[in-house]
Design a protein around this nucleic acid. Sequence first.
DNA 1: GTCTATAACATGATAGAC
DNA 2: GTCTATCATGTTATAGAC
Lengths: 193, 193
Amino acid sequence: MEHTQERLLDTAAELFARQGYAGVSMRDIARAVGITQAAIYHHFDNKDALYIAAITYLFEQHTLGISEQMAAIDGPASRLELLIGTMLELMEKDPRFRRIYMRELLEGDEDKLAAIAENAFTAFYEPLYTLMGELAPGADPQLLIFSLAGMIFHHLEARKLAPYLPHAAKRHTEIPPLAQHITRLFLYGVTQS
Amino acid sequence: MEHTQERLLDTAAELFARQGYAGVSMRDIARAVGITQAAIYHHFDNKDALYIAAITYLFEQHTLGISEQMAAIDGPASRLELLIGTMLELMEKDPRFRRIYMRELLEGDEDKLAAIAENAFTAFYEPLYTLMGELAPGADPQLLIFSLAGMIFHHLEARKLAPYLPHAAKRHTEIPPLAQHITRLFLYGVTQS
DNA sequence: GTCTATAACATGATAGAC
DNA sequence: GTCTATCATGTTATAGAC
């Protein structure tokens, strides 16, 4: 059935996001889906093809949701606040997207990065670029996008590390305080946050 | 000779940082050092022990350099500027530190994260914590540290992706413009950068 | 579309010579 | 301290039955 193919993509995305390409075997994926390892080769040519198909599938799902949210509200500052909250929630609920993204930055070859940039990214990169231009007409939008993305991703990833640090507290890992902190820092800087 | 042990640590750190734990075999490391795979087991009990020793070795080297730089200059704002520039330069020159850090956030188990937090991190976490307290007495220092670290790490990691994005430019990947951008955004926010 | 069986090779780790 | 040789296991991928 065709249903198996989508379950393979979904399961592979999950496992690859958690354990990386080399950390997941075809047997692992097959076991999680409930078929044998050999049966995967009926749906995909090899491990590499399954990997690329899985992350493409993952990125298509997510960029869709985000770019819809982006168009909804107007007023640059309130759109920024909404965007930060939405991205934090979305990427907390499904960590696969941000894990694959981080992983590809770490070890992705040129071809894969180019494919990600073109296919999956531009969909919500352009509206974001426009938003930054409205917020700060003098500044460089791409630098601002990377700074904002860096904060959002790192706060979420670092939640695993936060409890082991000296001055640990709940507000370092809960989403609403994180959203408020990032929004204020991004708008007004450390001097007024 | 004892020299081999350190070359093993250095080489293993390099390979693990680039390809991850599962992506590197004992034979890969041995080949890079110029000995056979079996000889590694004279120096380390197993792959896991070598991995932990390698990242500990790496973190010890780096936290040393950073915490020295931190104590040098006083005046919170200028120390922040120096810190951002130093970290960007240091982590550009040797990407191993930031790659291992990102990797451990992605897939590190509880034990490894706790070990990192205690042994390697606190050395330059505390002075950073104090600095943030001086810069913004009302705000939460740890949230600020994570935001700053997120920007620094992500700008560096994303340099591989930046050229493929629509409005690519040199200032998105060169260190001095990055340092200036991060410093101004962190201090004054988007409204005044 | 999924199975069993198997080929061909890579992996972590050990034993014992030098 | 490093080597060669070897083991047991895990890996991707294929062949052919159902």
